[in-house]
Amino acid sequence: MLYSMKQAFQNIFRNRFFSLASIGTIGASIFIFGVIYMVLMNVEGVLHSAEKTVGITVFFEEGTKEEDIFLLKEELLSGGETEKVEYTSAKEAWESFQKDYFNQDEELIKAFGEDNPLKESASLDIYLKNVESQKKLVGELKENPIVRKVNSSDTIAKQMSQMNRMAGLVSAALLGILLIVAVFLIQTTIRTGIFVRRDEIAIMKLIGATDGMVRAPFVIEGIVIGIVGACIPLAVLYVMYVKLGRMIVQQFGDALPLFSIVDTETIFVTLVPIAMVLGVGIGLFGSIITVRRHIRV
Protein backbone atom coordinates (compact mmCIF):
# COMPACT_ATOMS: atom_id res chain seq x y z
CA MET A 1 0.00 0.00 0.00
CA LEU A 2 2.77 2.39 0.99
CA TYR A 3 4.65 1.39 -2.13
CA SER A 4 1.61 2.01 -4.32
CA MET A 5 1.04 5.41 -2.75
CA LYS A 6 4.67 6.39 -3.27
CA GLN A 7 4.45 5.30 -6.90
CA ALA A 8 1.18 7.20 -7.34
CA PHE A 9 2.73 10.46 -6.14
CA GLN A 10 5.80 9.83 -8.30
CA ASN A 11 3.52 9.34 -11.32
CA ILE A 12 1.71 12.58 -10.62
CA PHE A 13 5.00 14.42 -10.35
CA ARG A 14 6.52 12.79 -13.43
CA ASN A 15 3.50 13.58 -15.58
CA ARG A 16 3.03 17.03 -14.11
CA PHE A 17 1.56 18.46 -17.29
CA PHE A 18 -1.22 15.90 -17.64
CA SER A 19 -1.78 15.72 -13.89
CA LEU A 20 -2.26 19.49 -13.76
CA ALA A 21 -4.55 19.39 -16.78
CA SER A 22 -6.66 16.70 -15.11
CA ILE A 23 -6.74 18.54 -11.80
CA GLY A 24 -7.68 21.69 -13.73
CA THR A 25 -10.57 20.05 -15.55
CA ILE A 26 -11.92 18.31 -12.47
CA GLY A 27 -11.46 21.58 -10.60
CA ALA A 28 -13.33 23.50 -13.32
CA SER A 29 -16.17 20.96 -13.34
CA ILE A 30 -16.53 21.10 -9.58
CA PHE A 31 -16.18 24.89 -9.57
CA ILE A 32 -18.98 25.25 -12.10
CA PHE A 33 -21.03 22.69 -10.22
CA GLY A 34 -20.41 24.65 -7.02
CA VAL A 35 -21.42 27.97 -8.58
CA ILE A 36 -24.57 26.41 -10.02
CA TYR A 37 -25.33 24.75 -6.72
CA MET A 38 -24.92 27.99 -4.82
CA VAL A 39 -27.10 29.90 -7.28
CA LEU A 40 -29.77 27.21 -7.20
CA MET A 41 -29.73 27.06 -3.42
CA ASN A 42 -30.19 30.82 -3.27
CA VAL A 43 -32.87 30.83 -5.98
CA GLU A 44 -34.56 28.10 -3.98
CA GLY A 45 -34.33 30.34 -0.92
CA VAL A 46 -35.89 33.25 -2.80
CA LEU A 47 -38.55 30.96 -4.20
CA HIS A 48 -39.30 29.69 -0.77
CA SER A 49 -39.76 33.14 0.64
CA ALA A 50 -41.72 34.11 -2.45
CA GLU A 51 -43.95 31.12 -1.92
CA LYS A 52 -44.71 32.39 1.52
CA THR A 53 -45.88 35.70 0.11
CA VAL A 54 -47.43 34.49 -3.12
CA GLY A 55 -50.79 33.13 -2.18
CA ILE A 56 -54.40 32.49 -3.11
CA THR A 57 -57.26 34.69 -1.99
CA VAL A 58 -60.72 33.12 -1.82
CA PHE A 59 -63.95 35.18 -1.71
CA PHE A 60 -67.28 33.70 -0.78
CA GLU A 61 -70.85 33.67 -2.09
CA GLU A 62 -73.34 36.07 -0.55
CA GLY A 63 -74.75 34.79 2.70
CA THR A 64 -71.98 32.27 3.38
CA LYS A 65 -71.85 31.61 7.09
CA GLU A 66 -68.64 32.27 8.97
CA GLU A 67 -68.60 28.72 10.37
CA ASP A 68 -68.59 27.30 6.80
CA ILE A 69 -65.58 29.46 6.02
CA PHE A 70 -63.85 28.24 9.17
CA LEU A 71 -64.64 24.67 8.18
CA LEU A 72 -62.96 25.25 4.81
CA LYS A 73 -59.99 26.83 6.60
CA GLU A 74 -59.61 23.74 8.78
CA GLU A 75 -59.87 21.48 5.72
CA LEU A 76 -57.18 23.43 3.93
CA LEU A 77 -54.84 23.35 6.93
CA SER A 78 -55.26 19.61 7.39
CA GLY A 79 -54.65 19.00 3.64
CA GLY A 80 -50.90 19.45 4.13
CA GLU A 81 -50.30 21.67 1.10
CA THR A 82 -50.77 24.97 2.88
CA GLU A 83 -48.25 26.78 5.00
CA LYS A 84 -50.74 29.25 6.47
CA VAL A 85 -54.42 30.17 6.04
CA GLU A 86 -55.61 33.55 7.26
CA TYR A 87 -59.23 34.61 7.61
CA THR A 88 -60.18 38.20 6.96
CA SER A 89 -63.74 39.08 7.95
CA ALA A 90 -65.76 41.64 5.98
CA LYS A 91 -65.34 44.11 8.86
CA GLU A 92 -61.57 43.67 8.86
CA ALA A 93 -61.47 44.05 5.08
CA TRP A 94 -63.37 47.35 5.31
CA GLU A 95 -61.12 48.61 8.13
CA SER A 96 -58.04 47.71 6.18
CA PHE A 97 -59.44 49.44 3.10
CA GLN A 98 -60.19 52.55 5.12
CA LYS A 99 -56.70 52.53 6.52
CA ASP A 100 -55.08 52.09 3.12
CA TYR A 101 -57.14 54.48 1.05
CA PHE A 102 -58.93 57.04 3.27
CA ASN A 103 -55.72 58.19 4.83
CA GLN A 104 -57.38 58.75 8.24
CA ASP A 105 -59.88 61.12 6.64
CA GLU A 106 -62.47 61.29 9.45
CA GLU A 107 -65.06 63.00 7.23
CA LEU A 108 -64.91 60.30 4.66
CA ILE A 109 -65.10 57.55 7.23
CA LYS A 110 -68.11 59.19 8.91
CA ALA A 111 -69.87 59.45 5.56
CA PHE A 112 -70.08 55.68 5.36
CA GLY A 113 -71.35 55.40 8.91
CA GLU A 114 -72.20 51.86 9.82
CA ASP A 115 -72.41 50.76 6.18
CA ASN A 116 -69.88 48.26 5.01
CA PRO A 117 -69.57 48.39 1.23
CA LEU A 118 -67.29 45.34 1.44
CA LYS A 119 -69.78 43.19 3.35
CA GLU A 120 -69.32 40.34 0.87
CA SER A 121 -65.55 40.60 1.09
CA ALA A 122 -64.80 38.04 3.80
CA SER A 123 -61.85 36.10 2.47
CA LEU A 124 -59.28 33.41 3.14
CA ASP A 125 -55.65 34.14 2.28
CA ILE A 126 -53.93 30.87 1.57
CA TYR A 127 -50.12 30.57 1.62
CA LEU A 128 -48.75 27.45 0.00
CA LYS A 129 -45.85 25.26 0.98
CA ASN A 130 -45.00 24.65 -2.67
CA VAL A 131 -45.84 26.93 -5.58
CA GLU A 132 -46.36 23.93 -7.85
CA SER A 133 -49.44 22.77 -5.94
CA GLN A 134 -51.21 26.08 -6.61
CA LYS A 135 -52.97 25.11 -9.85
CA LYS A 136 -54.52 22.00 -8.36
CA LEU A 137 -55.72 23.77 -5.24
CA VAL A 138 -57.24 26.67 -7.22
CA GLY A 139 -59.16 24.12 -9.30
CA GLU A 140 -60.51 22.42 -6.20
CA LEU A 141 -61.52 25.71 -4.58
CA LYS A 142 -63.39 26.83 -7.68
CA GLU A 143 -65.49 23.66 -7.46
CA ASN A 144 -66.55 24.51 -3.90
CA PRO A 145 -70.19 25.87 -3.87
CA ILE A 146 -69.52 28.50 -1.20
CA VAL A 147 -66.62 30.00 -3.18
CA ARG A 148 -67.45 33.01 -5.36
CA LYS A 149 -64.04 33.97 -6.63
CA VAL A 150 -60.45 32.75 -6.40
CA ASN A 151 -57.55 35.15 -6.97
CA SER A 152 -54.17 33.66 -7.55
CA SER A 153 -50.84 34.70 -8.99
CA ASP A 154 -50.51 31.87 -11.47
CA THR A 155 -47.96 33.50 -13.72
CA ILE A 156 -45.44 34.26 -11.02
CA ALA A 157 -45.74 30.73 -9.69
CA LYS A 158 -45.35 29.25 -13.13
CA GLN A 159 -42.42 31.47 -14.06
CA MET A 160 -40.60 30.74 -10.86
CA SER A 161 -40.83 26.99 -11.11
CA GLN A 162 -39.98 27.13 -14.82
CA MET A 163 -36.92 29.25 -14.11
CA ASN A 164 -35.80 26.83 -11.44
CA ARG A 165 -36.24 23.82 -13.73
CA MET A 166 -34.47 25.56 -16.60
CA ALA A 167 -31.49 26.50 -14.44
CA GLY A 168 -31.30 22.90 -13.28
CA LEU A 169 -31.34 21.53 -16.83
CA VAL A 170 -28.74 23.93 -18.19
CA SER A 171 -26.43 23.26 -15.28
CA ALA A 172 -26.86 19.49 -15.60
CA ALA A 173 -25.96 19.66 -19.30
CA LEU A 174 -22.92 21.84 -18.65
CA LEU A 175 -21.79 19.66 -15.80
CA GLY A 176 -22.25 16.53 -17.93
CA ILE A 177 -19.98 17.90 -20.67
CA LEU A 178 -17.33 18.92 -18.16
CA LEU A 179 -17.41 15.57 -16.43
CA ILE A 180 -16.87 13.78 -19.74
CA VAL A 181 -13.87 16.05 -20.48
CA ALA A 182 -12.52 15.40 -16.98
CA VAL A 183 -12.80 11.62 -17.33
CA PHE A 184 -11.13 11.82 -20.75
CA LEU A 185 -8.23 13.83 -19.34
CA ILE A 186 -7.80 11.51 -16.37
CA GLN A 187 -7.61 8.63 -18.83
CA THR A 188 -4.89 10.42 -20.81
CA THR A 189 -2.95 11.13 -17.61
CA ILE A 190 -3.13 7.54 -16.44
CA ARG A 191 -2.31 6.22 -19.91
CA THR A 192 0.78 8.42 -20.00
CA GLY A 193 1.77 7.13 -16.57
CA ILE A 194 1.36 3.56 -17.78
CA PHE A 195 3.51 4.34 -20.82
CA VAL A 196 6.25 5.98 -18.74
CA ARG A 197 6.30 3.04 -16.35
CA ARG A 198 5.88 0.32 -18.98
CA ASP A 199 9.25 -1.32 -18.18
CA GLU A 200 8.44 -1.47 -14.50
CA ILE A 201 4.98 -2.86 -15.23
CA ALA A 202 6.46 -5.53 -17.51
CA ILE A 203 8.93 -6.56 -14.79
CA MET A 204 6.20 -6.55 -12.15
CA LYS A 205 4.11 -8.90 -14.27
CA LEU A 206 7.06 -11.24 -14.83
CA ILE A 207 7.90 -11.51 -11.17
CA GLY A 208 4.37 -12.36 -10.19
CA ALA A 209 2.66 -9.13 -9.27
CA THR A 210 -1.13 -9.43 -9.27
CA ASP A 211 -3.38 -7.18 -11.35
CA GLY A 212 -4.24 -5.30 -8.18
CA MET A 213 -0.61 -4.59 -7.30
CA VAL A 214 0.21 -3.34 -10.78
CA ARG A 215 -2.95 -1.27 -11.05
CA ALA A 216 -3.04 0.16 -7.51
CA PRO A 217 -0.59 3.08 -8.05
CA PHE A 218 -2.61 4.29 -11.05
CA VAL A 219 -5.94 4.02 -9.25
CA ILE A 220 -4.48 5.90 -6.26
CA GLU A 221 -3.13 8.49 -8.72
CA GLY A 222 -6.65 8.97 -10.07
CA ILE A 223 -8.09 9.34 -6.57
CA VAL A 224 -5.41 11.84 -5.52
CA ILE A 225 -6.00 13.91 -8.67
CA GLY A 226 -9.73 13.77 -7.89
CA ILE A 227 -9.26 14.91 -4.29
CA VAL A 228 -6.92 17.77 -5.22
CA GLY A 229 -9.24 18.65 -8.09
CA ALA A 230 -12.11 18.93 -5.60
CA CYS A 231 -10.27 20.75 -2.79
CA ILE A 232 -9.00 23.65 -4.91
CA PRO A 233 -12.40 24.78 -6.26
CA LEU A 234 -13.98 24.25 -2.82
CA ALA A 235 -11.48 26.65 -1.27
CA VAL A 236 -12.00 29.18 -4.07
CA LEU A 237 -15.79 28.83 -3.82
CA TYR A 238 -15.68 29.30 -0.07
CA VAL A 239 -13.74 32.54 -0.27
CA MET A 240 -15.85 33.71 -3.20
CA TYR A 241 -19.16 32.93 -1.50
CA VAL A 242 -18.25 34.63 1.74
CA LYS A 243 -16.94 37.78 0.02
CA LEU A 244 -19.51 37.95 -2.78
CA GLY A 245 -22.39 37.15 -0.44
CA ARG A 246 -21.40 39.95 1.87
CA MET A 247 -21.10 42.33 -1.08
CA ILE A 248 -24.51 41.38 -2.53
CA VAL A 249 -26.25 41.83 0.80
CA GLN A 250 -24.61 45.23 1.26
CA GLN A 251 -25.45 46.38 -2.26
CA PHE A 252 -28.92 44.99 -2.85
CA GLY A 253 -30.21 44.03 0.58
CA ASP A 254 -32.52 47.04 0.82
CA ALA A 255 -33.68 47.02 -2.78
CA LEU A 256 -34.69 43.36 -2.77
CA PRO A 257 -36.47 42.52 0.46
CA LEU A 258 -37.21 38.97 -0.71
CA PHE A 259 -33.56 38.29 -1.34
CA SER A 260 -31.48 36.81 1.42
CA ILE A 261 -28.19 34.88 1.03
CA VAL A 262 -28.26 31.28 2.25
CA ASP A 263 -25.63 31.05 4.96
CA THR A 264 -22.19 29.62 4.13
CA GLU A 265 -22.46 26.66 6.46
CA THR A 266 -25.74 25.45 4.95
CA ILE A 267 -24.20 25.57 1.47
CA PHE A 268 -20.89 23.92 2.32
CA VAL A 269 -22.26 21.19 4.59
CA THR A 270 -23.73 19.65 1.43
CA LEU A 271 -21.35 21.00 -1.21
CA VAL A 272 -18.15 19.62 0.37
CA PRO A 273 -19.27 15.95 0.42
CA ILE A 274 -20.86 16.23 -3.04
CA ALA A 275 -17.68 17.79 -4.48
CA MET A 276 -15.46 15.17 -2.83
CA VAL A 277 -17.61 12.31 -4.09
CA LEU A 278 -17.60 13.89 -7.56
CA GLY A 279 -13.81 14.42 -7.56
CA VAL A 280 -12.95 10.99 -6.19
CA GLY A 281 -15.61 9.44 -8.42
CA ILE A 282 -14.22 10.99 -11.61
CA GLY A 283 -10.65 10.03 -10.62
CA LEU A 284 -11.61 6.51 -9.69
CA PHE A 285 -13.79 5.93 -12.75
CA GLY A 286 -11.23 7.39 -15.17
CA SER A 287 -8.32 5.43 -13.72
CA ILE A 288 -10.16 2.13 -13.35
CA ILE A 289 -11.36 2.01 -16.95
CA THR A 290 -7.86 2.94 -18.15
CA VAL A 291 -5.98 0.32 -16.12
CA ARG A 292 -8.53 -2.33 -16.99
CA ARG A 293 -7.96 -1.62 -20.65
CA HIS A 294 -4.18 -1.27 -20.55
CA ILE A 295 -2.88 -3.44 -17.73
CA ARG A 296 -3.58 -7.12 -17.85
CA VAL A 297 -1.25 -9.56 -16.16
Partner: peptide, 22 residues
Amino acid sequence: KRRKLPLYRRKLGVVFQDFRLL
Protein backbone atom coordinates in the same frame (compact mmCIF):
# COMPACT_ATOMS: atom_id res chain seq x y z
CA LYS B 1 -6.86 -19.16 -14.43
CA ARG B 2 -5.80 -15.61 -15.25
CA ARG B 3 -5.98 -14.49 -11.64
CA LYS B 4 -3.78 -17.41 -10.57
CA LEU B 5 -1.12 -16.53 -13.14
CA PRO B 6 0.90 -14.27 -10.78
CA LEU B 7 1.17 -17.14 -8.28
CA TYR B 8 2.53 -19.42 -11.01
CA ARG B 9 5.01 -16.78 -12.18
CA ARG B 10 6.37 -16.47 -8.65
CA LYS B 11 7.75 -19.98 -9.10
CA LEU B 12 9.85 -18.76 -12.02
CA GLY B 13 12.87 -16.50 -12.26
CA VAL B 14 13.75 -14.78 -15.51
CA VAL B 15 16.70 -12.85 -16.94
CA PHE B 16 16.98 -11.16 -20.31
CA GLN B 17 19.71 -10.05 -22.68
CA ASP B 18 18.91 -6.36 -22.00
CA PHE B 19 18.88 -6.89 -18.19
CA ARG B 20 15.60 -4.95 -17.77
CA LEU B 21 16.67 -3.13 -14.64
CA LEU B 22 14.82 -0.07 -13.37
